[in-house]
C-alpha cells in the first residue's frame, strides 16, 4: 500500500509552506499532491515557489500532482483552473470544473472533494481518463469495498483518507472573515494565524469543528490506524495523509511503519506522542457517526 500526501488545506507562510515540501523529500511517501485547494486568495503568497517545491520531490522519486481549487466561482479562479495542466504534472480534480478545462485525452487524478459515491460515477470518470481516485471521506467501508472492486476492473487506483482533519464542507462565505466582522473580499487574511484551522466549540465547550476560511473541518483527526487491515482486504491502494503543523514528517514515517506491519496499538501510541492534543476518529468508515473512534467504542 502507498502513501499520498494531500494538499495542505491551511494558509501557511511561504517559508513554512516551502519547508513542508523540502522535508517531504526525505519521508517514505510515494506521492505528493500540492497547490491551493481551499482559497484562491492564498495562492499568490507561494505560487512562485511551486516549481522549486516540485523538483526535489521528483528527484526523490515521488510522484507529484497539482490540485485544483475545491470550489471555482470567480473569473480569475476559472483562469487559474484552466492553467493547471500547463505545469507539466498530473492534475487532481477537486471541483469538476477542473475536468472541464483539461485537454481531451489527458490522464488525471480525482481528489476527495469530488462526489464519487458509486460505480456509475467511477466508470464515467474512467471513461474521461481518471487514473486514480481518492474517495470522499464520508464513505463507509462497505462502499469502499464495492468501489475498489470496480476500480480494479477499470485499472484505477483507489485511495482513502488516511490521516488528518476531515474536510467536511466548503462555502462561498469565509467564516474566518465573518468571525472578524469582515467580508471575504476584505478578509485581510484572517486565517493565517491558524495553521491547523481555528477550533470551534459547542455551547458546552466541547471541541467539535475547525474553521479554515471558506472550509469547515472536523475537530478530530481521522485516522486509519485501526482500519488498515480491512482497507487492505478491500484493495485500497493508498492512504492519504493531510499536512498538519505538528510532526507531519513523523506522521508519514509512522504510517509507513503501520503499512510495513507494525502493531496498530503501538502506532496509535506513537501518534498520540507526536500530537498529544489531537483527538482521533474513524467513524465514517465503520462507526455510527463520522466522529466516532473505534478504539473508544471497543473499550466500552
Amino acid at each position: 500500500m502507498e502513501l499520498t500526501v494531500g494538499p495542505n488545506q491551511f494558509f501557511w507562510s511561504a517559508g513554512d509552506w516551502s519547508s513542508l515540501y523540502q522535508g517531504l523529500a526525505a519521508t517514505p511517501v510515494d506521492r505528493v499532491v500540492l497547490g491551493e485547494l481551499v482559497c484562491s486568495k492564498r495562492l499568490p503568497f507561494y505560487q512562485k515557489d511551486i516549481p522549486e517545491a516540485i523538483s526535489p520531490l521528483v528527484d526523490a522519486g515521488k510522484e507529484v500532482i497539482l490540485t485544483s481549487l475545491a470550489l471555482v466561482t470567480l473569473k480569475r479562479e476559472r483562469k487559474m483552473t484552466d492553467e493547471l495542466s500547463e505545469m507539466g504534472v498530473m492534475v487532481e480534480v477537486n471541483d469538476l470544473t477542473a475536468l472541464a478545462s483539461l485537454p481531451a485525452e489527458t490522464a488525471f487524478a480525482v481528489g476527495p472533494l469530488v462526489n464519487v459515491y458509486n460505480e456509475g460515477t467511477l466508470r464515467w470518470l474512467a471513461s474521461r481518463g481518471a487514473k486514480r481516485v481518492c474517495l470522499p471521506p464520508e464513505l463507509p467501508l462497505s462502499s469502499v469495498k464495492v468501489l475498489c472492486a470496480t476500480g480494479a476492473e477499470l485499472g484505477m487506483a483507489i485511495e482513502v483518507w488516511g490521516h488528518g482533519r476531515l474536510p467536511l464542507a466548503i462555502s462561498g462565505r469565509c467564516y474566518h472573515a465573518r468571525l472578524h466582522g469582515r467580508s471575504k473580499d476584505n478578509c485581510q487574511f484572517a486565517c493565517e494565524d491558524d495553521p491547523d484551522g481555528l477550533d470551534v466549540l459547542t455551547m458546552d465547550d466541547k471541541p467539535f469543528l475547525a474553521m479554515n476560511g471558506v472550509q469547515t473541518l472536523s475537530d478530530t483527526y481521522a485516522s486509519t490506524v485501526f482500519q488498515l487491515s480491512a482497507l487492505r482486504d478491500t484493495g485500497v491502494s493508498a492512504l492519504r495523509l493531510s499536512p498538519q503543523s505538528t510532526g507531519f514528517a513523523n506522521i508519514c514515517t509512522t504510517y509507513r511503519a503501520l503499512i510495513d506491519g507494525a502493531d496498530p496499538l503501538d502506532i496509535a501510541t506513537r501518534l498520540a506522542e507526536i500530537d498529544p492534543s489531537a483527538r482521533l476518529s474513524d467513524g465514517f468508515l465503520t462507526g455510527a457517526r463520522g466522529v466516532d473512534w473505534s478504539a473508544t467504542t471497543a473499550a466500552e
Binding site: E138, L168, G287, R289, G290, V291
Partner: peptide, 21 residues
Amino acid sequence: CVMAEGRCSLSSYATGESPNM
C-alpha cells in the same frame, strides 16, 4: 444552505446521516 450544496458532510459527521447519502 450556507455550505456549497452537495459538498457538505457536517450532518453525517455528527449524526451518521447526510444529504448526499
